[in-house]
Amino acid sequence: MSVMRRALLVAVSAATAVVMAAGPGAGAEAGSAGGRGGDPGPGGAPGAAPAPASIAPEADLAHHGHASLWSGELTMRLGSENHGPSPLPDATVRIEFSVRLVADQALPSNCLWGGERIVLCRTGQLRAVGRSREIALGLRTVGTPDEVVVRIDTAWNGGASDRNLENHQHRVLVPATGDLYAF
């Protein structure tokens, strides 16, 4: 009998894990066994609802701005925006350059070097349907390239889910004309 109880316990545990992974109420209709009817639910008491699964907040993070290149001087302004619906406690923007940059250049206080060609910048808290303060970069390239490709992406968004990848991933070709190239 002990072996039978163990097998039943393993089967019930596996079924509970599958139901919890599927989320509360998945596959259960009102009044069905294990639901909110008179039968005991996963909580053990009659009518007990299953414990809610942890759901990541959803936030649509976007990055927009412009970049310019002239005589080896690369300037960039970037702002981040949260289209909601959830606020973000913080986010990190990853900016990657196709050319080498002069080492040990000063960055704004909310930015740091992530490699020879990568800058990471913190946006700060973004309320739902809110904007960050603008990030301004003035960087020297090694030599005077004819063009630079700048890639902008979200490195971290506070664990939120973002279904719209179109507005926070950009690849911008910046010719050495001194003109502003928007993204």
Results as ranks from 00 to 15, higher is better:
Ser2Tyr: 01
Val3Gly: 05
Val3Pro: 05
Arg5Phe: 15
Arg6Leu: 13
Val12Ser: 04
Ser13Tyr: 08
Ala14Cys: 08
Ala17Gln: 08
Val18Glu: 06
Ala21Phe: 09
Ala21Thr: 05
Gly23Met: 12
Gly23Glu: 14
Gly25Ser: 11
Ala30Arg: 13
Gly31Asn: 10
Gly31Arg: 13
Gly34Phe: 05
Gly35Trp: 14
Arg36Ala: 14
Arg36Cys: 11
Arg36Asp: 14
Gly38Glu: 15
Asp39Tyr: 08
Pro40Thr: 01
Pro40His: 02
Gly41Val: 01
Gly41Arg: 03
Pro42Trp: 15
Ala49Phe: 15
Ala49Tyr: 15
Pro50Cys: 15
Pro52Glu: 00
Pro52Ala: 00
Ala53Arg: 15
Ser54Val: 15
Ser54Cys: 12
Ile55Val: 15
Ile55Leu: 14
Ala56Thr: 05
Glu58Tyr: 10
Glu58Asn: 12
Asp60Gln: 11
Leu61Glu: 13
Ala62Met: 05
Ala62His: 07
His63Ala: 10
His64Asn: 09
Ser68His: 03
Leu69Met: 06
Trp70Ile: 13
Ser71Val: 00
Glu73Phe: 08
Thr75Ser: 12
Leu78Gln: 06
Gly79Thr: 10
Ser80Asn: 07
Glu81Val: 02
Glu81Gly: 05
His83Gln: 12
Gly84Glu: 06
Gly84Leu: 03
Pro85Met: 10
Ser86Ile: 04
Pro87Lys: 00
Leu88Ser: 00
Pro89Ser: 12
Pro89Trp: 08
Pro89Leu: 07
Ala91Tyr: 01
Ala91Cys: 04
Ala91Val: 05
Thr92Arg: 11
Thr92Met: 08
Val93Gln: 06
Arg94Met: 07
Ile95Cys: 06
Ile95Gly: 05
Ser98Ile: 03
Arg100Ser: 13
Leu101Ile: 03
Val102Leu: 11
Ala103Gln: 09
Gln105Gly: 07
Ser109Leu: 04
Gly114Leu: 01
Gly114Pro: 06
Arg117Trp: 04
Ile118Gly: 02
Arg122Glu: 09
Thr123Gly: 06
Gly124Trp: 02
Leu126His: 08
Leu126Val: 10
Gly130Thr: 10
Arg133Met: 08
Arg133Glu: 10
Glu134Gln: 09
Ala136Leu: 11
Leu137Lys: 05
Leu137Thr: 07
Gly138Ser: 13
Thr141Tyr: 01
Val142Thr: 09
Val142Tyr: 01
Thr144Phe: 02
Asp146Asn: 06
Asp146Phe: 05
Glu147Pro: 00
Val149Ser: 05
Arg151Lys: 13
Arg151Gly: 13
Ile152Asp: 02
Ile152Tyr: 00
Thr154Met: 01
Ala160His: 13
Asp162Tyr: 12
Asn164Lys: 11
Leu165Trp: 03
Leu165Phe: 03
Asn167Met: 02
Gln169Lys: 07
Val172Ala: 02
Leu173Asn: 08
Val174Arg: 00
Pro175Arg: 03
Ala176Tyr: 13
Gly178Leu: 14
Gly178Glu: 15
Asp179Glu: 14
